[in-house]
């Protein structure tokens, strides 16, 4: 089975997020972008399927910044091809525009299955997986936490609230949105990534025209205005521990 994996770069939420001068988008000057975590799970699921059934894994990403290390890491983990789609993505592009770019890039790639994260942390206009599936005319199942394959079909384990799973039989080719791979994403040692940097080739392809339609515009961005805020307990760990013991006692939680 030949699998294409799509990786989106998203703001690192650990860092402070600043809103730009327009007041309607993030300030990208110092914005640190990292690969979307669920996309890393999509890559892991693809590698697990390759180990079980053979085939190839091709990773595609839009060149929105420092993407090379992520692509070389994918090679070190076992990806066969890594492709960087270049274009003018300076201020970031929304998901509707991104899928038009991915659609073009995928025309030159043979695949039975496309895997990507169920969603990305900065999605506002739908998610890459279902939008791309609709554009390509392929079936889509999201919130997937495991995939098995037999007889040209796959069975996706789809997650519902409370940990309930629905098994869905999906005809190929198809797109799946991965919530979590069957196993935590594998770790590769730096030496293997260094080796990939020396030996592997990142293929580059031009994005071509970017169609922008279908997303609702953003008029204003802000930080959430909370109606309530936690009462903060000051002090070091020891003082906080004392305060919490007092609080728990008052609430009758220690009896």
């Amino acid at each position: 089975m030949d699998i294409a994996v799509l990786i989106k770069f998203v703001p690192d939420l650990v860092e402070e997020l600043e809103i730009g001068a327009s007041g309607a988008a993030l300030d990208r000057t110092f914005l640190r972008l990292i690969p979307n975590e669920q996309d890393d799970h999509a890559l892991e699921q693809a590698l697990l399927l390759k180990e079980r059934h053979g085939g190839t894994v091709t990773v595609l990403t839009l060149d929105t910044g420092d993407v090379d290390e992520t692509l070389f890491t994918a090679v070190a983990k076992g990806a066969d091809r890594v492709i960087k789609i270049t274009g003018d993505f300076g201020e970031g592009i929304n998901n509707h525009a991104a899928v038009t770019v991915l659609d073009t890039a995928l025309k030159n790639i043979s695949f039975d299955l496309i895997l990507t994260g169920t969603q990305a942390v900065d999605d506002l206009d739908g998610s890459i997986g279902p939008l791309l599936a609709a554009r390509l005319g392929l079936p889509y199942v999201g919130y997937v936490t495991g995939v098995t394959s037999a007889d040209g079909k796959i069975v996706a384990r789809k997650e519902y609230p409370g940990g309930l799973i629905a098994e869905m039989e999906v005809r190929l080719p198809a797109v799946l949105g991965i919530q979590a791979a069957e196993k935590p994403p594998r770790y590769v040692v730096t030496s293997l990534i260094m080796q990939a940097m020396k030996t592997a080739q990142i293929e580059e392809t031009e994005a071509g025209a970017v169609e922008v339609r279908g997303a609702a515009g953003v008029a204003r961005m802000s930080r959430p205005e909370a109606t309530t805020h936690a009462e903060l307990i000051e002090g070091d760990a020891d003082q906080v521990a004392d305060a919490l013991v007092t609080l728990f006692k008052e609430r009758g939680l220690l009896s």
Partner: peptide, 23 residues
Amino acid sequence: HTSMGMDVACGVSLDLDAPLVTS
């Protein structure tokens, strides 16, 4: 914005040629 809703909202929005806003 759920396991079911997100599986269909994107496709339906494209089928209807309707703009989409999520979460």
